[in-house]
């Protein structure tokens, strides 16, 4: 019984960690797109925001 609940806790911890990694990845990808990607269309669209939020621009 104890072992089972221990295993159960370990599984839910693993799935929680997977969720954490997934959401962190989504955030990082979004941040890269909005703030760092050098594609000129993206750069022009995000120009004022990059300057105004302290990203290196140009």
């Amino acid at each position: 019984m104890t072992m089972n609940s221990g295993a159960l806790r370990a599984t839910s911890q693993t799935s929680a960690l997977v969720s954490v990694l997934f959401v962190a990845f989504v955030g990082a990808a979004l941040l890269f797109t909005a703030g760092l990607a050098q594609s000129s269309t993206l750069h022009d669209a995000a120009h004022d925001v990059r300057h105004a939020t302290g990203f290196p621009c140009h």
Partner: peptide, 8 residues
């Protein structure tokens, strides 16, 4: 940008 920061 702030949604990205919020996700992090």
């Amino acid at each position: 940008v702030y949604t990205a920061y919020a996700a992090l």
